[in-house]
Design a binder for these strands. Structure first.
Length: 420
DNA sequence: TTTAGGG
DNA sequence: CCCTAAA
């Protein structure tokens, strides 16, 4: 049973070194045809995923196939007794650590086997072993290669377990695919798909943990300094409570698994809401964590900046925003950038506020404060104060002159300096 | 790790 | 808000 699978697999593997000597090139086509015919009856078993890094074997493909055919013939022949059901043969060789891998012969074990076969030593070892068992038989039978498999052989083939057949089918279909690509000269390099083992490992996460990957830990990680700060007087009473789910799941890095997750819904343990939400806003989900800045937050930010200076975002975060687990230092910086932009826009409009944005505009004192701070702590690489723009200040900072202050045109900062 | 800058 | 490069 398994012995057949095992030996077949290893025969396939090791043929490259052992059996190519007695096959003439002229037989290749014939054999391929025969093999193809054989294989056509077999359902294509889905990929072996172990296709990764089989390229080293690929060069010996034709030979592999030859041997495959031989095995199909020989192993069912009279001598097959020593093959079929003789899985103990591997136990003869104590050094054959790899043999253990193949005995179970599940798909995953095949995967394991294949990956193990990348190991040179293992291959050699198996070579040795098989030269003892296989080669002699095969060489012995080689002269009869031309003849078709006898009906007896085919019967024996049919006698195989269904499990064995499945396995055999898998292996053969794999051979077939590779042979086709190789023989046709295309030698298509298959895209590196995730190995079955990888998928299995991924899906193993599913049952136990509802925590979707990394989402859980980051939330707690941020409040390293749970300094008790009155919840910034924000009108949003629910802010602190809700931010755990809103922001707690902020993904610092996209994990490679994310590809699966979005494509196949491997993590089907998601609630329906989650799934719907994920589908709906896959594109702009970067915005879904967005949080309106409250005035009090802005004030705190301004205070922090005036206290620590611009650029000390971590300090500001630690001391003033420790209670809000969202608002990373980067957020603070971004907000400050936006505030500067806004203040500049405001100033440029001579105090007139676009009625459309009137609601969002900052109170005048805050605006003044921002402008004030901007002069004291110019935002990085802002060479001159916004207030004195247009004068020759920029000439004093020739290096930094290229980075323009914030313009009223959204984020296009550079056009402004050209205009001036 | 933090910051700056771009998107 | 996110990502990445640079420090």
């Amino acid at each position: 049973m398994d012995g057949f699978s095992y030996e077949f697999e290893f025969g396939f593997r090791t043929n490259c070194g052992g059996l190519d000597s007695f096959t003439t090139q002229g037989e290749d086509d014939l054999k391929l045809e025969v093999l193809d015919g054989l294989l056509d009856d077999i359902d294509e078993v889905d990929d072996f995923h172990a296709a990764n890094d089989l390229s080293t074997v690929c060069d010996d493909f034709l030979l592999d196939i030859e041997f495959t055919e031989k095995v199909a013939k020989f192993d069912c022949g009279p001598v097959e007794g020593s093959h079929l059901g003789n899985s103990s043969s591997e136990s003869h060789s104590p050094g054959a650590s790899g043999s253990n891998v193949a005995v179970g012969m599940s798909d995953s074990s095949i995967t394991a086997l294949e990956s193990e076969c990348k190991n040179d030593s293992l291959e050699k070892m198996v070579n040795c072993e098989l030269h003892g068992t296989f080669k002699s038989k095969c060489e012995y039978q080689a002269p009869d290669m031309e003849k078709c498999p006898s009906s007896h052989d085919m019967d024996r083939f049919d006698e195989l377990d269904s499990d064995d057949n499945v396995l055999l089918s898998s292996i053969l279909s794999k051979c077939k695919k590779r042979v086709k690509s190789t023989v046709l000269g295309t030698k298509v390099k298959r895209l590196r798909k995730p190995t079955k083992r990888y998928i299995e490992e991924s899906s193993d996460l599913k049952p136990g943990s509802l925590m979707r990957g990394q989402n859980v830990s980051t939330a707690t990680l941020k409040d390293k300094h749970p300094k008790v700060t009155p919840c910034n007087g924000s009108s949003k009473g629910s802010q602190v409570a809700s931010e755990s789910w809103l922001r707690g799941g902020r993904l610092k890095k996209r994990s490679p698994i994310l590809g699966f997750e979005s494509d196949d819904d491997i993590f089907s343990s998601d609630s329906d809401d989650d799934r719907v939400r994920k589908r709906k806003s896959k594109i702009d989900d970067r915005r879904k964590n967005q949080r309106m800045w409250t005035l009090s937050e802005v004030m705190k930010l301004i205070d922090g900046i005036s206290q620590f200076g611009v650029g000390k975002w971590t300090d500001i975060k630690r001391l003033l925003f420790s209670s809000s687990s969202h608002r990373t230092p980067i957020d603070l910086r971004d907000k400050w950038r936006n505030l500067l932009r806004a203040s500049y826009a405001h100033q440029k409009n001579k105090g007139e506020v676009d009625p459309k944005h009137a609601m969002r505009s900052l109170p005048k004192p805050v605006l003044c404060r921002i402008r004030e701070l901007a002069t004291i702590h110019p935002y990085p690489r802002v060479p001159y104060s916004k207030k004195c723009n247009g004068d020759t200040d920029s000439s004093r900072h020739p290096i930094k002159a290229k980075s323009a202050p914030f313009s009223s045109h959204g984020r296009n900062l550079r056009t402004t300096i050209k205009e001036q």
